[in-house]
């Protein structure tokens, strides 16, 4: 199962992804790949992990391999597997892969294609994959991963954020197709406010997450969400994740 967390900037994608990672970390016998697809790298911080190497580093190394010459596709494929394994930051049954920030604008389409294949191959070896996507529709549009099973849309209660979520669903239906989608309304004051959002959209609403002081504190003090105690926001996110089938 591959679940991608998408939405407008600042609505709580990383928070939801971090809680998902924590929930998966408690599922014995299941191995989870956690992809921090935001170049700013917020999820690694939220999980208290420090990746030594990013996917962008891997990309650069593979480009060097190609440039050096003398390597056929098979050599490059096994090299990529090795480098990807090196880029995983492991914590128990979780493995984090950070995308990193691409520095050069050079187009290496072939490299991007084999990278995508390799990540999909890697995800296929895990029982669950969560992707904390970059804000907005860009990544969905570029079809960063074609085999996403569920797009978990996150918004706050603002009309703008819900509209972005709606747009993302449209693009996902077109670019991926057949995946599940649902909206999680974050930082609602109460059920009434969340209900108003639900009435104003045709999106499937999975639930709502209250504004939560424990979440604020963990974020403010940079504590690892892997240690997040039971709190109202966590409970609401876990309930929504159960509806997606991830946990």
């Amino acid at each position: 199962m591959i679940l991608s967390v998408c939405g407008k900037g600042g609505v709580g994608k990383t928070t939801v992804s971090a809680v998902a990672a924590q929930a998966l970390s408690r599922e014995d016998g299941r191995r989870a790949l956690v992809v921090d697809a935001d170049p700013a790298g917020g999820l690694a911080v939220a999980l208290g992990l420090e990746p030594r190497k990013t996917l962008n580093d891997v990309r650069k190394e593979i480009i060097e391999e190609v440039k050096a010459g003398g390597r056929d596709e098979k050599d490059l494929a096994v090299s990529l597997d090795y480098l990807l394994a090196e880029a995983l930051t492991e914590q128990g049954n979780l493995a984090l892969l950070s995308i990193g920030r691409p520095e050069d604008a050079g187009c290496y389409c072939k490299v991007n294609v084999i990278l995508k294949d390799a990540i999909e191959g890697l995800a296929g070896r895990f029982d669950a994959t969560i992707i904390d996507a970059e804000a907005g529709i860009e990544q969905v549009n570029r079809k960063v991963l074609s085999s996403v099973d569920y797009v978990l849309l996150v918004s706050d209660t603002s009309a703008k954020a819900v509209k972005v979520a709606r747009t993302i669903k449209g693009v996902a239906d077109q670019m991926i197709g057949g995946q599940g989608t649902g909206l999680l309304v974050n930082r609602a004051r109460d059920a009434d406010e969340a209900g108003a959002v639900e009435r104003g959209t045709d999106l499937d609403v999975l639930g709502w997450v209250p504004e939560d002081d424990t979440v604020r504190r963990f974020d403010g003090e940079e504590l690892s969400f892997l240690e997040l105690p039971d709190c109202p926001a966590r409970a609401a996110i876990v309930t929504a994740l159960e509806k997606t089938g991830l946990i």
């Binding site: 391999e65 050096a68 390597r71 056929d72 098979k74 050599d75 096994v78 090299s79 597997d81 090795y82 480098l83 394994a85």
Partner: peptide, 28 residues
């Protein structure tokens, strides 16, 4: 060479993971 190399690369055993980095001549 390619056949022999592929035979080595493609050897996969249960409970055993192997990664190869040809340019570093390393296996992990």
């Amino acid at each position: 060479y390619r056949d022999v190399r592929d035979a080595v690369y493609d050897t996969r055993l249960a409970g055993f993971s192997v990664r190869t980095m040809p340019s570093r001549q390393s296996v992990w």
